[in-house]
């Protein structure tokens, strides 16, 4: 047993020296391909050369306009939102040490969504900065509530307690959201596509507006890599190694709220990216959060881009909300995890 774990450790060290950077650049390359594919495929048939020309040598033709004002911002936002959700999921799973944690399951998305619906209902506002701040508020309050509720249950923060608390809160929030939507059909019409989770019809200013929030969130997350790795050893060990666990947790929580909140503000509640990505990444990379975090960002971006392309192509010229796509793919994965990865 001892020798086995020694070889595992040796292998993972070898992995981290050589394979991990190579893998990172490889996945960056895949991300680039997905981005190009996302810009190229769509309802209007536009050749790759035209896409290239539109980006480098803009001439104002319809095709170029489509690329620049419709597809490019949409793809960039999908990329950004995917990265944010992936990293938020990793942080949540690391913080709660729970393989089922993710912004969607634990109700953080639902909280952000409800805050936005309330804002639209009360102020009729559709400006993104209002969306964003409401979404942050909603996400933050819900995250804290779920965490408290989950840790109050019997046996502390078990996956079951946390998941049930999240599910109950989601039920409550979505029923209240529905009640608001009933009172105002105008709000319903304005917001229903957004509620399903979609990156369609987003323009470039939106990208620029969410960029700083997600940028800060990602920066905080990446800076926490080493501390998060220590934290996975357990609170006691981390404390005895001299870590101020409370501060690490709080900072990570701020990052989660920034990332999940702005992702919801930009694209509506898109579930399951934050659940699936950490598992794939941990399977490939191991336990070192200094590598897990950047990998998760890239994988999240790839996953959402691919899901968005599929959502567009599957029933073209109509398109599905991408949130529905990710739920249909991600929920079976959740069930798989619940069956095989959760042990009591």
């Amino acid at each position: 047993m001892a020798s086995e774990s020694a070889t595992v450790r040796g292998k993972s060290r070898g992995r981290s020296r050589l394979l991990l950077p190579v893998g990172l650049s490889l996945s960056l390359f895949i991300l680039l391909i997905s981005l190009v594919a996302s810009i190229t495929y769509g309802a209007a048939d536009i050749s790759f050369d035209t896409v290239y020309a539109a980006l480098t040598d803009f001439d104002g033709s319809t095709d170029h306009l489509i690329i620049r004002t419709v597809r490019l911002p949409r793809s960039l936002i999908a990329m950004l939102v995917g990265a944010a959700l992936g990293v938020a999921g990793v942080l949540m799973q690391g913080l709660t040490r729970n393989p089922l944690a993710s912004p969607g399951i634990l109700g953080v998305n639902a909280g952000a969504a409800m805050a936005v619906v309330i804002a639209v209902f009360l102020f009729g506002s559709s400006s993104l900065s209002v969306y964003a701040w409401c979404a942050f508020g909603g996400a933050g309050v819900t995250a804290i509530t779920v965490y408290l509720l989950g840790s109050l249950g019997r046996g502390g923060l078990t996956p079951l307690n946390l998941t049930i608390a999240g599910a109950a809160l989601t039920a409550l929030l979505s029923s209240l959201t529905t009640a608001i939507l009933i009172l105002s059909q105008q709000t319903l019409d304005e917001i229903r596509f957004w509620l399903a989770g979609s990156v369609a019809g987003r323009d470039f200013t939106l990208f620029l507006q969410v960029l700083p929030y997600i940028g800060i969130g990602l920066a905080i997350a990446f800076a926490l890599g080493k501390q998060m790795t220590t934290l996975t050893l357990g609170d006691d060990v981390a404390k005895s190694l001299g870590q101020q666990t409370l501060w690490v947790k709080l900072t990570a929580a701020v990052s989660v709220v920034l990332l999940a909140g702005s992702a919801v503000a930009a694209a509506g509640p898109i579930g399951f990216i934050g659940l699936v990505v950490p598992h794939i990444v941990r399977f490939l990379v191991g336990v070192d959060y200094r590598w897990i975090l950047p990998y998760s960002a890239i994988f999240g971006a790839i996953l959402l881009l691919v899901a968005d392309i599929t959502a567009r192509v599957l029933i073209s010229p109509q398109e599905l909300p991408v949130g529905v796509m990710t739920a249909l793919v991600g929920a079976p994965f959740f069930i798989y995890l619940a069956r095989f990865k959760v042990r009591r």
């Binding site: 079951l160 109509q318 249909l328 069930i335």
Partner: peptide
């Protein structure tokens, strides 16, 4: 319970689909 939560998510997505279209 956990499987139920997962299934509920899929069904919620499908209901959303109905509501959207």
């Amino acid at each position: 319970i956990l499987v139920g939560v997962g299934i509920a998510a899929i069904l919620g997505a499908l209901t959303n689909l109905m509501v959207t279209f």
